[in-house]
Write a protein that binds this DNA or RNA. Sequence first.
DNA 1: GTGAAAGCGCTAACAT
DNA 2: ATGTTAGCGCTTTCAC
Lengths: 329, 329
Amino acid sequence: MSTATVSRALSSPERVSDGTRARVSEAVRVTGYTLNQTARSLRQRSARTILVALPDIRNPFFSSILDAIEREVTARGYGMLVANLYFGHQATRLQDYLLSNRADGLLLLDGSLNADDLRVITSAPYSVPLVVACEDIPNSGFHTVVTDNVQAAERATRHLIELGHRRIGHIFGPEQNVVARDRLAGFNRAMNREGLPIAPEWVFRGSFEMDSGFAASARYMTLADRPTAVFAANDESAIGFLSGLRRHGILCPRDISVIGFDDLGVAPHYSPPLSTMRQPRETLGKMAAEALIDLIEGRQGNGTPLRIVLQSELIARESTGRPAELASA
Amino acid sequence: MSTATVSRALSSPERVSDGTRARVSEAVRVTGYTLNQTARSLRQRSARTILVALPDIRNPFFSSILDAIEREVTARGYGMLVANLYFGHQATRLQDYLLSNRADGLLLLDGSLNADDLRVITSAPYSVPLVVACEDIPNSGFHTVVTDNVQAAERATRHLIELGHRRIGHIFGPEQNVVARDRLAGFNRAMNREGLPIAPEWVFRGSFEMDSGFAASARYMTLADRPTAVFAANDESAIGFLSGLRRHGILCPRDISVIGFDDLGVAPHYSPPLSTMRQPRETLGKMAAEALIDLIEGRQGNGTPLRIVLQSELIARESTGRPAELASA
DNA sequence: GTGAAAGCGCTAACAT
DNA sequence: ATGTTAGCGCTTTCAC
C-alpha cells in the first residue's frame, strides 16, 4: 500500500475502497500513527491555525471573548495562537506569524494598530485574512464584528436620566481608545438630546482600570458642585470609583448612582450590585471566529467587507436609583 | 548565491562573510521575504511553539498566568497555542496537537487529567516535554511548578485564629480538585494545631465560582450556631458569600470575618476590601514557561523531575477583624 | 481504486 | 565561506 493511499484513506475516506479503509484504520490503531501536521501544512500551505491578537489577556472582558473564539475555532478543527500586544503598534510581530505560514488568518481584538501597517499583510501579495473584533478600526474597510458602543453608552446614560438625574458625569477610558471614545460620544449624545449640560470637570480621565476609577473618586471629592450620577466607561472603573467614594462616606445608590459597562462576573455580587451594559461577548467571539474561518476557507469571499454590529443590553441593578432630592417622591 | 547561503545568513549570520550577510539583508528588505516557518519546522522537527492547556481561560487567575507565560514564551521566540479543557479528561485532544508536531511541549495548568494518559505522550517513543503548573498532579513524577496551597491555607486560617476567632468555617472548592483539597487540608491543619473543633456543617461545598459562595451564604443563614469567620477557597467564593450575607443584613467585618485566596484585581476594591492570600502568579507562569522551554531545548535534562514550590503571601485587608465578642476589648 | 513520482521551503551533511 | 544535494512527511497530479 502506498503512502498516497494512506493519505487518501485518512483525509478523503470516500475515495478508497472499504477494505483499504479498514486496513488503514487498523494500522493506524496498532502503530499509534499521528499525521504530521507540519508536513501537511507545508504541502497545503495552510496551518489550520489562527492568530488572535489582543491588548490584554488578563482583562476578563477579553478573556471571555477568547474563550468563545477558542470553542468555535476548536470545533472547526483549528488551533489558536495567542499574542498579547501590550503597548500596541506591533504589527511587525503579527506579520511574522502570518507571513511565515504559522497562522492562516488574524483575529484582531485591538483597535489601536495602524490600518496601513495592517493593510500590508491583508492586501496582495500576502492577502492574509483579517477580522477585527471588539475594537473597531474606523474607515479601515476590514471585516469587522463589534458592538454598538455609542448606542449602548447612550442607553446607559439615558437610564440615569430616566431615573431623574440631571447632573451626570462620566469616567472616560484611554483617550486614544476607540471604544472609550465611542462611549464618551454616546454619553454626550444622550446628554445633548435631553438638553442637559456637560460639565468638563465632570468628565474624569480614566484608563479602563480600577485604579483610574479610584483616582477619579479623589477628584470627585474635590468638586464644589458634584454630579448625582456617573456613567463609567467600564465596570472596572465604576468599581474603583465606588471603592474610593466609600472611603469618603459617599454611599451608592443613596448619594450617587453609578452605571458601568461590560457586566463583569463580579458585577451582580458587588456592593451594591452594579448596573451595567452587557455586551453579547460569547456571540461576538463566536461570530468573529466564524467569519475569519469562512474567509480563510474561501467562503464569504464576495468582496464587500463584512460588518456585524451587535447590540448591548441594559442590566439595571442596585447601583443606580433616583437622585437623593427625588428619593422621597 | 545558493539557498543554503541565504539560510545560513539568516539563522547563523556569523557563518557567512560580511559581504554576503549585507547582500542577503538587502535582498530580504527589498523583496519582503519571510522565512517559511512551516518548512523550517518540518525540517528541524520543532515548531517553536508550545501548547498551554487550562481548565478555564475566563478565570482571571488563569488568564494572568497565561499572560506571564505568553511574555516568557514570546521573549524566547516561541508561539503559544491555547487549549481550553472545559470538562477535563481530554488528553487525546492534547495528544493530537503534540504528536502531530504542532507544538514542541505542553504546559498543563489543569490537575484533573489522568497521569497515565499523559504518560503516554511524555514517555518513549514520543517523549513530549511536559511541565505541570498551578495544579499539581500528585505522585506523577512530572516536572511541576506550584505554590504550597496547604501551607498558604493554613496561614490564612491562622490569620483568623490570631484575630481571636475560634468558630471558623470553610468554603470548599470542587471536591475532585487538588487545589481545593490542599486548601481544605491546610484549613484542617491550622484548626487541629490550635485544638479547635471543625464542625462539618461549617464546611460548605463550593465550586470556586461566585454562585457557589452565594449558595453557601444561604446555608449559613439556616445554621442555628454560626461560625464567626470563614476561610473561602478562593476570592470568587468569598465574594459570592459576602454578597449573599449582605442581603441578609450580615455585615463584614462587623458580624463575620472572611478571607479569600488569589488576590483578584477586585479584592482591594471590594466592600469591604478583601483579605486574601496572594500567589506569585507572574513568577509561577514565568518559571513554568522557562522550565518547559529549557526542557524542549535539551537543557535541564538531568533526569530528576523538577519541582518548584512557591510561597503565597497574606494580604490582610478589611474583611477580617476581631470577632464581635472581642471587638470592644 | 491504487501506485509512482514530484515537490511544498527549508536546513544539514558533505564537498569544494 | 559557499555551493550541491538530499530529504523532513505529506498531498496531489498523472498513469494505469
